[in-house]
């Protein structure tokens, strides 16, 4: 059993209506401590209404090597963007 405290990633929702944003990481022995540490380190200036912590080891990330395959194909599918479509000015609410 390791004596190291595992690394946790911290996500904070700074205001109601916003998403949780990744703000950094910290070490803690358990989840309860991680929340408390996150609160102590990342919300000192009233920057938080909600905290998520997760063990860094549990994060599943896309592989930068696959960035091309994962993200390039979306580039030429511009029809997903609203600006691709030409709508006459007189038509409202579109």
């Amino acid at each position: 059993m390791s004596n190291d405290w595992p690394l946790f990633e911290v996500f904070i929702r700074s205001r109601a209506g916003l998403e949780h944003k990744h703000v950094g990481s910290l070490h803690a022995a358990d989840a309860r401590m991680a929340i408390e540490h996150a609160r102590d380190v990342y919300t000192r200036r009233q920057e938080g209404v909600s905290i998520w912590v997760m063990r860094s080891a549990d994060i599943i990330a896309s592989d930068p090597q696959e960035a091309e395959a994962l993200f390039e194909p979306a580039r030429d599918k511009v029809y997903r963007h609203p600006t691709f479509y030409a709508i006459p000015e007189e038509v409202k609410n579109l």
């Binding site: 405290w5 910290l26 070490h27 803690a28 401590m33 408390e36 540490h37 102590d40 380190v41 000192r44």
Partner: peptide, 11 residues
Amino acid sequence: PELEEELALAN
């Protein structure tokens, strides 16, 4: 004992 506890006790 740890940097995180420094901050906690200071709080």
